[in-house]
Amino acid sequence: MSQLVTDNADIPTIFEYVLGILWWKVSGRRGKVLDYLKLSLDANLLPITHAAGGEADIVYEYKACKDYPEHSLLLEATLADGTNQRRMEMEPVSRHLGNHLIKTGNLKSYCVFATTYLHINVISDFRARKNITYFDSQDYDKYVTGLKIIPLDTDDLRHIIEEQITYVQLYKHFERAHNSAEMHPKKWYDQYVNIESSDLYQHNETPYMIAAEPTPDK
């Protein structure tokens, strides 16, 4: 991967960089991608170091339109797997989103967690956050309930690219997944999140028509 992008950054940083570019294209190339990335870039706009701790890796801002409300999307990227993923990602991802919601007051914002391997306990923890209250550690009177964290693996990302799926489609898909009935976390992911098994995937028997890009509200 480093030979295809740059040899000045480690693989996790490159993965984060590629994810940011991918999401910018999925979003119809709207906004300034460099404003969304939390990376240090060189003179050629290639990555050097990844996001510092304490905040999400990438934060996209979406203005209100007929297809979704104004919101932020926090993108969290990791190459950690197995028990390392559970130890390294479960707490920071929910903390980043919880703090963002408390700070901005916009409860429509949510998080997408992207990785090469989805640990079952990570899926379970993120799904359970829908029903858990997150408190400001400095002020217990400040809190939010119902964190929306959608886990994706790199196969999902590949299918998003191959099928040219738009953010309008993904937003509705993620909303359906988040609001679906409670069930075993792996079955929830397979049935409601997984891109290949969804109606977004055009190789299914019932093709899905690609939606137009959003029209801003006036």
Rank of each mutant, 00 (worst) to 15 (best):
129 R>S: 05
160 I>A: 10
145 T>V: 01
184 H>D: 15
67 D>A: 03
206 T>I: 15
172 K>I: 04
50 H>R: 14
15 F>G: 13
165 I>W: 03
105 G>D: 01
86 R>N: 12
99 N>P: 02
112 V>N: 03
40 S>L: 12
147 L>D: 02
177 A>V: 05
209 M>S: 12
22 L>Y: 08
76 E>D: 12
45 L>K: 11
38 K>V: 01
98 G>I: 06
92 P>N: 11
131 N>S: 15
95 R>A: 14
27 S>W: 06
101 L>W: 06
39 L>W: 05
71 H>P: 01
88 M>A: 15
34 L>I: 11
124 S>C: 09
173 H>L: 04
110 Y>S: 00
179 N>M: 02
169 Q>C: 06
179 N>E: 12
115 T>C: 14
198 S>F: 13
136 D>I: 00
120 I>G: 02
69 P>T: 07
176 R>K: 14
149 I>S: 00
117 Y>T: 06
188 W>E: 06
203 H>I: 10
67 D>P: 04
116 T>F: 03
145 T>I: 05
175 E>T: 01
25 K>W: 08
206 T>M: 10
201 Y>T: 09
172 K>M: 00
160 I>Q: 00
14 I>C: 05
72 S>A: 11
210 I>K: 14
80 A>L: 02
88 M>Q: 10
165 I>N: 02
45 L>Y: 15
192 Y>P: 00
118 L>Q: 05
160 I>W: 07
139 D>C: 13
97 L>C: 07
194 N>M: 12
63 K>S: 10
212 A>Y: 12
168 V>F: 01
159 H>T: 13
207 P>E: 13
97 L>N: 04
131 N>C: 09
5 V>R: 01
58 I>N: 08
26 V>F: 01
183 M>Y: 02
148 K>P: 09
166 T>I: 09
152 L>I: 07
130 K>Q: 10
179 N>H: 07
142 K>F: 01
130 K>I: 01
205 E>H: 14
162 E>S: 12
198 S>Q: 12
183 M>Q: 15
135 F>V: 14
55 E>F: 10
209 M>P: 01
155 D>W: 11
26 V>L: 01
169 Q>L: 09
217 D>Q: 07
79 L>V: 01
168 V>G: 00
1 M>S: 13
147 L>N: 00
12 P>W: 03
96 H>C: 08
159 H>L: 13
107 L>A: 12
25 K>T: 11
186 K>L: 15
194 N>W: 09
173 H>G: 09
172 K>L: 06
74 L>F: 08
152 L>C: 04
